Amino acid sequence: MSSPRIVILAGPGPSTDILFHALDRAFGVHSIIVEEPVSQQQLLKRRVEKLGWATVAGQIMFKLLVAKPLEAASQARQQAIRAAHGLVADPLPESHLTRVASVNSPECIAELQRMQPDVVVVNGTRIIAKKVLQAVSCPFLNTHAGITPLYRGVHGGYWALANNDEAHCGVSIHLVDAGIDTGGIVHQALIYPTKEDNFTTYPLLQLAAGLPLLIQAVREALDGTLQLQPAPVGTSRLWSHPTLAEYLRNRHRAR
């Protein structure tokens, strides 16, 4: 029996490195297609168009005054999490890599059709266009750092804690559709941050909790036993980056 063709479709970054090594240990990854990141100028323009200058200015202040110092101060905690869960963040092997400008480019579609994957695992990309999802006849799976559909978008663990909603502070494995974290739910799990954790370590805890579920979902997809789970009760909402004011207001619930 031939090895399964598992293809990772991702943006560059530590979470992609960790995800690759976990899947490669479990199955052997066939290829990784990595897109170029969206430029900061483009991201800023899109955010301003969507949220307005005042909100975006508050988000920038949060990043500069809170997130970056927290990241620097949390290196030991992040290393402890990686060690406790066996997360390997070594660089991606060049032998497995194909680089494209965008996951929605003709080049990416051509690569997917050439590779004919059994499963595509998505991580940290742009919103994937329907034409890409329909280019090959296999499931696309994503690990989302939040409990969907209640905490779609970014920083789902942080926002659950900020809303005093520990019962929905977790991670989701879901099918990818053309929406933002709106695909069918395959598996979900909660995380339990300690006093040592903060905004910059929640995503790593979510990744650690999500990887075993992702491996299970990939195995189910290969076996043809993938089943969707009912969505948790609540209002679906798309969350963005916190502003400095929001963070300070919520600090007694989420660090």
Rank of each mutant, 00 (worst) to 15 (best):
R251P: 00
G124C: 06
C138S: 08
A231R: 07
E111G: 01
A167R: 13
G210T: 10
H168T: 03
V136C: 13
K68S: 12
V48S: 05
Q78P: 14
V154T: 07
A83H: 07
I18G: 03
R77D: 06
G146P: 00
Q78Y: 02
V171Q: 08
Q188I: 13
G183A: 07
G11P: 10
A217I: 05
H252V: 00
R126T: 09
A135H: 02
R126E: 12
P12T: 00
I127K: 02
R237E: 11
A83M: 03
V218R: 02
D177V: 10
E246W: 13
L97T: 00
D197R: 08
Q41F: 05
Y192D: 12
A101Q: 12
G183L: 11
L150S: 01
L204M: 15
R25S: 14
S137M: 10
Q134E: 08
L87Y: 03
A101D: 10
L213H: 03
R255K: 12
G224W: 12
A22P: 03
T182A: 11
I60F: 14
M1N: 05
G28L: 09
E246M: 13
L222Q: 04
A189N: 11
Q229C: 10
H155E: 02
S15L: 15
S95N: 13
Q113D: 05
R253V: 06
I109E: 14
F199L: 10
I109V: 13
Q75L: 14
H241C: 03
V34Q: 10
A22E: 05
A231K: 06
Q134W: 02
P4Q: 14
G210S: 13
A110N: 07
A254T: 05
A57C: 11
R25A: 15
Q229V: 14
C108Y: 04
I127A: 08
R219W: 01
S2N: 09
T201A: 01
V88R: 13
A217E: 01
N142W: 02
L207A: 01
L238K: 04
Y192G: 10
R5M: 09
A83L: 02
L9P: 12
I185W: 10
V121I: 05
P37N: 03
D17R: 13
A67Q: 14
I128V: 09
R126P: 01
S74M: 09
L213C: 02
V119S: 03
S102R: 12
I180E: 11
F140Y: 09
